[in-house]
Protein backbone atom coordinates (compact mmCIF):
# COMPACT_ATOMS: atom_id res chain seq x y z
CA UNK A 1 0.00 0.00 0.00
CA UNK A 2 1.39 3.37 -1.00
CA UNK A 3 1.69 6.33 1.34
CA UNK A 4 -0.99 8.15 -0.71
CA UNK A 5 -3.45 5.34 0.10
CA UNK A 6 -2.36 5.47 3.75
CA UNK A 7 -3.08 9.21 3.93
CA UNK A 8 -6.50 8.55 2.41
CA UNK A 9 -7.20 5.78 4.96
CA UNK A 10 -6.09 8.05 7.81
CA UNK A 11 -8.13 11.01 6.55
CA UNK A 12 -11.21 8.84 6.06
CA UNK A 13 -10.94 7.53 9.61
CA UNK A 14 -10.25 10.96 11.12
CA UNK A 15 -13.21 12.52 9.29
CA UNK A 16 -15.44 9.74 10.63
CA UNK A 17 -14.20 10.34 14.17
CA UNK A 18 -14.86 14.06 13.76
CA UNK A 19 -18.32 13.53 12.29
CA UNK A 20 -19.27 11.17 15.12
CA UNK A 21 -18.05 13.49 17.87
CA UNK A 22 -20.99 15.76 18.74
CA UNK A 23 -18.92 18.35 20.62
CA UNK A 24 -16.40 18.82 17.83
CA UNK A 25 -19.15 18.97 15.23
CA UNK A 26 -21.18 21.54 17.18
CA UNK A 27 -18.36 23.93 18.00
CA UNK A 28 -16.74 23.76 14.59
CA UNK A 29 -19.61 23.47 12.15
CA UNK A 30 -22.77 24.70 13.84
CA UNK A 31 -21.72 27.41 16.29
CA UNK A 32 -20.20 29.76 13.64
CA UNK A 33 -23.48 29.60 11.69
CA UNK A 34 -25.53 30.36 14.82
CA UNK A 35 -23.17 33.22 15.68
CA UNK A 36 -23.48 34.77 12.22
CA UNK A 37 -27.29 34.67 12.27
CA UNK A 38 -27.51 35.94 15.87
CA UNK A 39 -25.07 38.79 15.43
CA UNK A 40 -26.66 40.06 12.26
CA UNK A 41 -30.06 39.64 13.95
CA UNK A 42 -29.05 41.46 17.15
CA UNK A 43 -26.94 44.26 15.76
CA UNK A 44 -28.85 44.77 12.56
CA UNK A 45 -27.34 45.14 9.15
CA UNK A 46 -26.53 48.84 9.44
CA UNK A 47 -24.00 50.65 7.28
CA UNK A 48 -20.76 51.30 9.19
CA UNK A 49 -19.18 54.77 8.91
CA UNK A 50 -15.82 53.41 10.17
CA UNK A 51 -15.71 51.04 7.23
CA UNK A 52 -16.57 53.30 4.30
CA UNK A 53 -20.31 52.71 4.61
CA UNK A 54 -20.32 48.91 4.05
CA UNK A 55 -22.98 46.85 5.81
CA UNK A 56 -22.23 45.14 9.12
CA UNK A 57 -22.88 41.71 7.61
CA UNK A 58 -20.12 42.33 5.05
CA UNK A 59 -17.74 42.40 8.02
CA UNK A 60 -19.45 39.62 9.93
CA UNK A 61 -19.41 36.97 7.22
CA UNK A 62 -15.58 37.03 6.92
CA UNK A 63 -15.27 37.50 10.71
CA UNK A 64 -17.17 34.29 11.40
CA UNK A 65 -15.34 32.50 8.60
CA UNK A 66 -12.20 33.36 10.59
CA UNK A 67 -13.80 32.01 13.76
CA UNK A 68 -14.85 28.82 11.96
CA UNK A 69 -11.38 28.23 10.51
CA UNK A 70 -9.72 28.88 13.88
CA UNK A 71 -12.17 26.41 15.48
CA UNK A 72 -11.56 23.78 12.82
CA UNK A 73 -7.78 24.17 12.94
CA UNK A 74 -6.39 25.60 16.18
CA UNK A 75 -9.13 24.48 18.57
CA UNK A 76 -9.85 21.10 16.96
CA UNK A 77 -6.16 20.15 16.68
CA UNK A 78 -5.18 21.36 20.14
CA UNK A 79 -8.01 19.40 21.77
CA UNK A 80 -7.84 16.46 19.34
CA UNK A 81 -4.09 15.89 19.62
CA UNK A 82 -4.20 16.29 23.41
CA UNK A 83 -6.95 13.69 23.66
CA UNK A 84 -5.10 11.37 21.30
CA UNK A 85 -1.90 11.80 23.28
CA UNK A 86 -3.45 11.29 26.71
CA UNK A 87 -5.67 8.38 25.68
CA UNK A 88 -2.62 6.59 24.29
CA UNK A 89 -3.85 6.63 20.68
CA UNK A 90 -0.72 8.45 19.51
CA UNK A 91 1.57 6.09 21.38
CA UNK A 92 -0.22 3.18 19.77
CA UNK A 93 0.20 4.73 16.33
CA UNK A 94 3.86 5.30 17.16
CA UNK A 95 4.15 1.56 17.82
CA UNK A 96 3.15 0.81 14.22
CA UNK A 97 5.28 1.39 11.12
CA UNK A 98 3.13 4.33 10.00
CA UNK A 99 5.16 7.45 9.20
CA UNK A 100 4.43 10.26 11.70
CA UNK A 101 3.57 12.72 8.91
CA UNK A 102 0.64 10.52 7.89
CA UNK A 103 -0.82 10.80 11.39
CA UNK A 104 -0.53 14.60 11.12
CA UNK A 105 -1.86 14.64 7.56
CA UNK A 106 -5.08 12.90 8.56
CA UNK A 107 -5.93 15.39 11.29
CA UNK A 108 -4.75 18.47 9.40
CA UNK A 109 -6.67 17.23 6.35
CA UNK A 110 -9.77 16.96 8.53
CA UNK A 111 -9.24 20.59 9.62
CA UNK A 112 -8.92 21.70 6.00
CA UNK A 113 -12.04 19.82 4.90
CA UNK A 114 -14.05 21.25 7.82
CA UNK A 115 -12.72 24.78 7.13
CA UNK A 116 -13.75 24.57 3.48
CA UNK A 117 -17.19 23.15 4.29
CA UNK A 118 -18.02 25.74 6.96
CA UNK A 119 -16.62 28.61 4.90
CA UNK A 120 -18.86 27.55 2.01
CA UNK A 121 -21.91 27.34 4.29
CA UNK A 122 -21.23 30.79 5.82
CA UNK A 123 -20.69 32.38 2.41
CA UNK A 124 -23.91 30.85 1.12
CA UNK A 125 -25.92 32.07 4.11
CA UNK A 126 -24.29 35.51 3.77
CA UNK A 127 -25.22 35.73 0.11
CA UNK A 128 -28.75 34.37 0.40
CA UNK A 129 -29.86 35.88 3.73
CA UNK A 130 -27.83 39.08 4.05
CA UNK A 131 -26.93 39.96 0.47
CA UNK A 132 -23.18 39.79 1.12
CA UNK A 133 -21.77 39.58 -2.39
CA UNK A 134 -19.19 36.87 -2.89
CA UNK A 135 -15.88 38.33 -3.93
CA UNK A 136 -14.97 37.57 -7.54
CA UNK A 137 -12.15 39.97 -8.38
CA UNK A 138 -10.81 39.42 -4.87
CA UNK A 139 -11.02 35.62 -4.98
CA UNK A 140 -7.19 35.40 -4.81
CA UNK A 141 -7.37 37.47 -1.62
CA UNK A 142 -9.93 35.12 -0.08
CA UNK A 143 -8.08 31.96 -1.07
CA UNK A 144 -4.67 33.21 0.03
CA UNK A 145 -6.07 34.33 3.41
CA UNK A 146 -7.77 30.95 3.92
CA UNK A 147 -4.65 29.01 2.91
CA UNK A 148 -2.17 30.96 5.04
CA UNK A 149 -4.61 31.28 7.95
CA UNK A 150 -5.47 27.58 8.04
CA UNK A 151 -1.80 26.61 7.83
CA UNK A 152 -0.80 29.04 10.60
CA UNK A 153 -3.58 28.03 12.99
CA UNK A 154 -2.97 24.32 12.38
CA UNK A 155 0.69 24.78 13.30
CA UNK A 156 -0.21 26.86 16.37
CA UNK A 157 -2.83 24.33 17.49
CA UNK A 158 -0.35 21.46 17.34
CA UNK A 159 2.31 23.55 19.10
CA UNK A 160 -0.16 24.50 21.83
CA UNK A 161 -0.68 20.84 22.86
CA UNK A 162 2.69 21.11 24.61
CA UNK A 163 1.12 23.50 27.12
CA UNK A 164 -1.95 21.34 27.81
CA UNK A 165 -1.38 18.78 30.58
CA UNK A 166 -4.55 16.69 30.35
CA UNK A 167 -7.72 15.93 28.42
CA UNK A 168 -9.81 17.72 31.05
CA UNK A 169 -7.77 20.89 30.67
CA UNK A 170 -7.84 20.94 26.88
CA UNK A 171 -11.20 22.62 26.09
CA UNK A 172 -10.82 25.24 28.85
CA UNK A 173 -7.22 26.10 28.01
CA UNK A 174 -7.97 26.34 24.30
CA UNK A 175 -11.03 28.55 24.72
CA UNK A 176 -9.16 30.71 27.21
CA UNK A 177 -6.88 31.62 24.33
CA UNK A 178 -9.31 32.00 21.45
CA UNK A 179 -12.29 33.70 23.11
CA UNK A 180 -10.39 36.86 24.16
CA UNK A 181 -8.69 36.83 20.76
CA UNK A 182 -12.07 36.86 19.00
CA UNK A 183 -13.14 39.88 21.05
CA UNK A 184 -10.02 41.97 20.41
CA UNK A 185 -9.53 40.90 16.79
CA UNK A 186 -12.77 42.12 15.23
CA UNK A 187 -14.79 38.89 15.24
CA UNK A 188 -17.57 39.90 17.64
CA UNK A 189 -17.01 43.69 17.62
CA UNK A 190 -15.86 45.74 14.59
CA UNK A 191 -12.11 46.14 15.04
CA UNK A 192 -12.03 49.89 14.40
CA UNK A 193 -14.48 50.46 17.29
CA UNK A 194 -11.97 49.03 19.82
CA UNK A 195 -9.68 51.25 21.98
CA UNK A 196 -6.35 52.02 20.32
CA UNK A 197 -4.34 50.15 22.96
CA UNK A 198 -6.27 46.92 22.39
CA UNK A 199 -5.93 47.38 18.63
CA UNK A 200 -2.14 47.63 18.90
CA UNK A 201 -1.96 44.45 20.97
CA UNK A 202 -4.32 42.54 18.69
CA UNK A 203 -2.35 43.53 15.60
CA UNK A 204 0.65 41.65 16.99
CA UNK A 205 -1.36 38.45 17.54
CA UNK A 206 -2.42 36.02 14.81
CA UNK A 207 -6.23 36.34 14.83
CA UNK A 208 -6.53 40.02 13.87
CA UNK A 209 -4.44 39.77 10.67
CA UNK A 210 -6.52 36.73 9.65
CA UNK A 211 -9.85 38.49 10.23
CA UNK A 212 -8.54 41.60 8.50
CA UNK A 213 -7.26 39.71 5.45
CA UNK A 214 -10.64 38.01 5.01
CA UNK A 215 -12.54 41.30 5.48
CA UNK A 216 -10.38 42.99 2.86
CA UNK A 217 -11.28 40.23 0.42
CA UNK A 218 -15.00 40.72 1.13
CA UNK A 219 -14.95 44.55 1.16
CA UNK A 220 -16.63 45.90 -2.01
CA UNK A 221 -14.39 48.98 -1.78
CA UNK A 222 -11.25 46.86 -2.14
CA UNK A 223 -9.50 47.43 -5.44
CA UNK A 224 -7.29 44.83 -7.10
CA UNK A 225 -7.10 41.16 -6.11
CA UNK A 226 -7.46 41.81 -2.38
CA UNK A 227 -4.34 40.01 -1.18
CA UNK A 228 -3.46 41.58 2.17
CA UNK A 229 0.33 41.29 2.11
CA UNK A 230 1.06 42.65 5.59
CA UNK A 231 -1.60 40.49 7.23
CA UNK A 232 -0.45 37.36 5.45
CA UNK A 233 3.16 38.03 6.42
CA UNK A 234 2.19 38.33 10.11
CA UNK A 235 0.17 35.13 9.85
CA UNK A 236 3.05 33.35 8.15
CA UNK A 237 5.46 34.42 10.90
CA UNK A 238 3.06 33.06 13.52
CA UNK A 239 2.72 29.86 11.48
CA UNK A 240 6.48 29.38 11.34
CA UNK A 241 6.76 30.01 15.11
CA UNK A 242 4.07 27.37 15.64
CA UNK A 243 5.80 24.94 13.33
CA UNK A 244 9.15 25.31 15.09
CA UNK A 245 7.60 24.82 18.54
CA UNK A 246 5.56 21.85 17.31
CA UNK A 247 8.55 20.19 15.65
CA UNK A 248 10.67 20.60 18.79
CA UNK A 249 8.22 19.80 21.54
CA UNK A 250 5.50 17.53 20.17
CA UNK A 251 4.89 14.62 22.50
CA UNK A 252 3.55 11.19 21.49
CA UNK A 253 3.25 9.64 24.92
CA UNK A 254 0.73 10.42 27.65
CA UNK A 255 1.87 13.07 30.09
CA UNK A 256 0.61 11.13 33.12
CA UNK A 257 2.89 8.14 32.45
CA UNK A 258 6.09 10.20 32.23
CA UNK A 259 8.46 8.60 34.72
Amino acid sequence: MSDARRVLAQLTADLKVFRRNPAALFFTAILPVIFLCLFVGIFGNARLEDYGGIRASTLQVPAFIALAVISASFVALAIGFTNARESGTLKRQRATPVAPWIVFAGRIGTSIVMSVVVTTVLMTIGAVAFGVSLPTSTLPGLLSALAVGTAAFCALGIAYTRMIPSQDAAPAMTNAVVLPLYFISGVFVPFRQLPDGLQSIAELLPAQPFVDALQIAFDPNTTGVGVAGDDLLKLAVWGVIGLIIAARTFDWTPRHSAA
Binding site: K16, V17, S87, G88, T89, K91, R92, P254
Partner: peptide, 9 residues
Protein backbone atom coordinates in the same frame (compact mmCIF):
# COMPACT_ATOMS: atom_id res chain seq x y z
CA UNK B 1 0.00 -1.71 25.11
CA UNK B 2 -1.42 -1.83 28.59
CA UNK B 3 -2.25 1.84 28.54
CA UNK B 4 -4.46 3.64 26.11
CA UNK B 5 -7.36 2.64 23.96
CA UNK B 6 -8.46 2.79 20.37
CA UNK B 7 -10.63 5.74 19.34
CA UNK B 8 -14.13 5.16 20.61
CA UNK B 9 -15.89 6.72 17.59
Amino acid sequence: LQEGRAQSE
